[in-house]
Design a protein around this nucleic acid. Structure first.
Lengths: 240, 240
DNA sequence: CAGTGGTCTAGACCACCAA
DNA sequence: TGGTGGTCTAGACCACTGT
């Protein structure tokens, strides 16, 4: 573990314990360097992490300050800006999957483009009903390339795909693009999620990539309007 | 402009021009340092920016590579992970606002909490119908603290609030929290957006802050399911 | 083992802010 | 004008990869 990450964690812990407030600046970088017995540059890198997380901000020539909205941050903390599979998110609840549809076929044009595939690269095409504590929760329709996620049989689909990828294939998940929209209920929604014509559905279309940028999932996830929302945190970011 | 940002831009431009592909690694840091006549550490900082943008990734002991999904990135580029007011987003179209409701009052409990206000801090409470090229598009219900955004009269509401804040008040926008959900149409939706009982609505509840973390907007924005979606890009991020 | 990226240091200089 | 954060350098050492 890099030293500056370690220091960043410690400072974050201090902020969370309320040792620094928005009223007064943090100790200056030179003092912090002395306290942590390191160089000023290392302190700066540690603070950079906290700035990226939206916890603090620096004002050249003035000091480093805790933001006024840390309370908000902690409230959203659990759900913010991280991608984990459904199973992980619902820790403490029983999540099971019913495989509604399962196929291996050649990709359509849009899938080729989004998953960066040649026309002969086969894909898995499956629909799963996710069930939480015994009640139907959401429907996931996923397309995954065989060459990126080999061995995705029905047995795996009943459990966590993300767990399988991490533990069995040794892959780490990277960035995700999502398009979020409202939609009218379709046949699946009516049949499995108990939706009727005036039940708004929330749909997430997403492309998820591995750490090296290889896209491995193109999926559509739908749930009833009263069974879940999406939380997003958009930090300010240095623009290139 | 910091040197490493300048270098980052140049390398980004090279990547975008296709001078580097995902097949071969970029030149190593030492070579780049020589090419740009700077130190290796500065190169590393420049590359860090590109890694944060999800353009490239580094593998210790091996090299630095362009991700396979740059093509995707460019496609989403315009809408990704940035907050700008409605007016800005619709450049090239005529956006006007009709003020449906306008009030100054004391904050409710939830507003106090989300906007970090005392009970006596007055807020503006207004509802605007945003109209694009003559057709009703979305309804924005906003709560803003008077002490943070003074002088928000009806005249300003007809134009861009974000423009007003930036140009008149000299404030810069920082992070935003958003909760996105589907919803059944309410009275406003039916009246102004031509929604009926089976028209799903997309609602965005958000808290937007200034650069120093002061929250200045708590709002609910709604549009018909067929009049807009939300695009989100979630890069992988070093976690603390 | 050679080559690559990752981290850290100590010191220098600059830019900005407040008194 | 003194104190603060922002940037940059040159060099050192470490960790990992591929041959």
């Amino acid at each position: 573990m890099a030293k500056y990450i370690e220091i960043g964690k410690q400072i974050k812990a201090q902020i969370m314990r309320g040792e620094y407030t928005s009223d007064v600046p943090l100790p200056d970088q030179v003092s912090l360097a002395k306290m942590f017995k390191t160089s000023r540059v290392t302190i700066q890198k540690a603070l950079d992490l906290l700035i990226n997380e939206g916890l603090i901000y620096s004002k050249q020539g003035s000091g480093t300050y805790v933001k006024q909205n840390i309370n908000l941050l902690s409230k959203f903390d659990a759900t913010v800006d991280q991608y984990v599979g459904t199973t992980e998110l619902m820790r403490g609840h029983t999540v099971t999957s019913e495989v509604i549809d399962y196929d291996v076929r050649l990709p359509e044009a849009k899938e080729q483009e989004n998953l960066n595939l040649a026309i002969a690269d086969a894909v898995y095409d499956f629909v799963r009903l996710r069930i939480v504590d015994g009640t139907p929760w959401k429907i996931e329709h996923s397309i995954m390339p065989v060459k990126v996620v080999p061995g995705l049989n029905k047995g795996v689909l009943h459990h966590s795909i993300y767990h399988y990828m991490h533990e069995e294939l040794g892959e780490t998940i990277g960035a995700a693009y999502r398009i979020i929209r409202a939609a009218q209920p379709n046949a699946y929604d009516r049949r499995y999620l108990d939706a009727v014509s005036d039940t708004p559905m929330l749909e997430v279309e997403q492309i998820v990539s591995l750490a090296d940028g290889t896209p491995f999932e193109y999926s559509f996830t739908r749930n009833r309007y009263d069974k879940g929302s999406i939380v997003v945190y958009h930090p300010e970011r240095p623009m290139l």
